[in-house]
Design a protein around this nucleic acid. Structure first.
Lengths: 227, 227
DNA sequence: ATGCTGTAAACTGTCAACAGTTTGAGTTTC
DNA sequence: GAAACTCAAACTGTTGACAGTTTACAGCAT
């Protein structure tokens, strides 16, 4: 009975969850752009399912704030304003500060070593001026912080915010200088964690918010005073 | 044409959203208890709709973390453990600290007066040993903090956490002493906001977390060291 | 009595069709 | 030429039905 597993996989996942994951992927990769309308029929035909599971999946994505439904008018990939992007960023930073403080209070040597490694990798990406690599490693760094802090709820909220932040049209192509600043802040976070100073770790996380917000505004060319 | 409004309501709101609100109400009021299974057919019959809207509504509530779906086995009102309740509480407190800091940086006299009034009301509830009134006014106080802070995202996340926290079976019937402690912390928050000291306001919010967590554990009879 | 097996009822997951609304092209009117 | 109207196509909201799975119970063996 070698081929029993595929059947199990089909049986243990609903079409709704599969559709939801696929649409989420389409949105996060930009194949479905913010503001774009999602046609239920076409989507159902493309995925070879009926409209039922598609509608259920879209309802889930609505609560996840990735799409917006307008009555009798269909669902649209959500568009977020600069103000909303900043709010999301602040919430991300808030949670980051929290987990940094927790890690300062309790973390293993292995965890700290992994964080240090990621910072090294980001330095390499900066040297290579590889913004894409930096972006991904930056996500990995923050993911690691969330994982190690031992608060599953904080991690889930953070992940939801990160997904939502991908809705911003302006793909943040950071300059080498911005990346260097950002990574210096990562280093400060790790230093504070190493010394076990929860307040300092939290402050470093907070500083990372403020810095990230400023760099975001710089990147999109909006003066902070204009907000 | 006196009876035109109900029709309009039906037209401008989908059945799904109505079902979702109703099921949410049933859960938050405890008519649907944590762990209880939700029968789609019965629910659809009770609300006089077909199963489609019901299923869509349940999918939304799943993302809102109020229900849990098990494949081929239906959806259940979510049960949360003490650990999860503590995580939710910490996140609530985290956001509270954030908005307190923002209010210290910017708030109007009217807003501060309203907060002061709510604290007075809570004092009255304590004197009357009316835990129910205290509970509701406490929610109103925190709602006001969220409203006035001017971060819509923070408010939404907080509201979602509050709804989720209602899933805990143990209705926190605080003692008069616990209520007094809690309200004293509210007063410290307001004092810090009044003096415009963002750091102190935030610290007061943080203290309110720790205090609330300790009181919660006291109420359910779990030693903090056991967690 | 106790445990196992088979069967039927109940329920979930999925689909296809219907009803009502929106949208846009074409036509008419001013 | 522009605005208003008409009408059909397209699409969403909703429903009812079908297929497959789970569950509970009765019957049987031990």
């Amino acid at each position: 009975m070698l081929h029993t597993q595929p059947i199990d996989i089909v049986r243990t996942q609903s079409l709704t969850s599969l559709v939801q994951r696929e649409v989420e992927r389409l949105i996060l990769t930009g194949e479905l752009a913010p503001g774009e309308r999602i046609n239920e029929q076409h989507l159902a035909a493309r995925l070879r399912v009926s409209r039922g599971p598609v509608r259920e999946a879209l309802r889930g994505l609505e609560k996840a704030r990735l799409v917006e439904a307008r009555v009798n008018r269909g669902v649209y990939v959500r568009e977020i304003s600069v103000e909303q992007a900043l709010e999301i960023s602040e919430m991300r930073g808030l949670i980051t500060g929290y987990v940094c403080a927790r890690l300062a209070a309790a973390s293993t040597a292995e965890q700290r070593a992994h964080l240090a490694q990621l910072i090294e990798d980001m330095d390499a990406a900066i040297t290579a001026n590889d913004a894409q690599a930096y972006y991904e490693q930056n996500l990995a760094f923050h993911d690691a912080l969330m994982d190690y802090a031992g608060n599953a709820r904080a991690k889930e909220m953070y992940d939801a915010l990160v997904k939502e932040s991908h809705l911003t049209r302006r793909k943040s192509l950071f300059s080498a200088r911005a990346m260097a600043e950002s990574n210096a802040e990562h280093r400060m976070i790790l230093d504070a964690i190493r010394t076990g100073d929860a307040a300092a770790a939290r402050a470093a996380g907070e500083a990372h918010i403020v810095g990230g917000k400023r760099r975001f505004l710089d990147a999109i060319g909006v003066a902070e005073t204009a907000i």
